[in-house]
Amino acid sequence: MNRIVVVALALTAATVWGEDPQPKKEPHKLPPELKVLRLGLIAKSQSNPVFQAARVGAVDAAKEWSEKLGIPVEVDWRTPLDEDAQKQAEYLEQLALQGVRGIAISCSDANTVTDAINRAVARGIPVVCFDSDARNSKRFCFHGVDDLECGRRLMAETAKALGPAGGDVAILAGNQNAPNLQKRVAGAKEEAAKHKNIRIVDVYYHKETPQDGAARVEQVQQANPHIKAWCMVGGWPLFTDVLLKWEPGRIKIVAVDALPSQLPYVEKGVAQVLMAQHCYNWGHRSIDLLVERIAYGREPKNPIDTAPLIPVTAENAKEFGKNWEKWLRKL
């Protein structure tokens, strides 16, 4: 068979299988004079590793889009050291004035940042929320878990861990003003109402640092030794090793997230289930959503872009932990 026939057959096969023998880049709608596409990323705090993972995801997405678009895509990371909604609002204003083309934010307090989001949108800068939403703002999309469903699943796993005997359950809830955490608490209470053998002692709030979270749990447990389980809508205390001294299984723990520091808790049986969020994807997906809108004018199919929860137990903790080698690498 001569070369011409071979090439012809290859082209025919490509057509049959729906492949473009010479794939062409889809033309974008960015101004030809634009040299760099700058996007802002505002997380809740630099002290929380889940947001470091989100930053890595955003940077990786930016690199991928740089190749696709043919111009550099850069991520401008503006995040307070610890949670501070007012600083987040200030960063929104700064980024908008400094000419970024889009902004992604995880809101510490929706009420505090909504006006700043709306002012950015009024300047023609699209905003996407991730992890924690500002539902009443003019952001065009939210990417994150369904927080009500997250709370329900946490309490369902707590009830399962307690078994038929049930018992008193404490809910640990971090920042009282965070809209995502409020919804998780609501979901947990809703699920608890379905279990006659479960009684919620109270909802306990604290500053969202590992040390404050662990201190709060120890303080409450000491004052209320009848508490049989902790339903944690965030994993803050497990970012430290403070509670690893607890006798495995005596007090049940079900928590959100499955960071490297949390995995020993399920491996040793101190915690029964961790509900992992794909923190890396918070950043990656946010950048994808922004670039799709800015460069191609594409809107998401749904303004609520729901992310999955991944149950992590002693059985799959080691395998899941491999993700963090990528997610927490140094930038």
Rank of each mutant, 00 (worst) to 15 (best):
E218H: 08
P179M: 14
N180L: 13
H206G: 00
E247I: 08
Y280F: 12
I294H: 01
H195N: 14
V242K: 00
V291L: 03
P179W: 12
T240A: 02
I251M: 15
Q176T: 15
H226V: 00
K252V: 07
A214S: 10
P237C: 09
R216S: 07
S261L: 10
D241A: 05
H206S: 07
A223C: 13
N197Y: 08
C231M: 03
W246D: 09
K207D: 09
I200D: 03
P260Q: 02
A215N: 11
L181Q: 00
I171A: 09
Q222W: 13
K189M: 09
G234C: 15
I198R: 09
V217R: 05
H284I: 10
A193G: 13
H226N: 04
A186E: 12
T209G: 07
D241C: 02
Q272R: 14
V291G: 02
E292M: 09
S261W: 06
H226F: 01
R250G: 06
M232N: 08
M275S: 11
Q262N: 15
Y265M: 06
G283R: 02
D212Q: 13
V273M: 10
Q272C: 07
R293P: 00
K252H: 04
S261E: 13
I251Y: 15
G283T: 08
G174P: 13
E267V: 03
V242H: 03
I227Y: 04
C231P: 01
E191V: 09
L244K: 05
L290I: 12
P179G: 10
M232F: 02
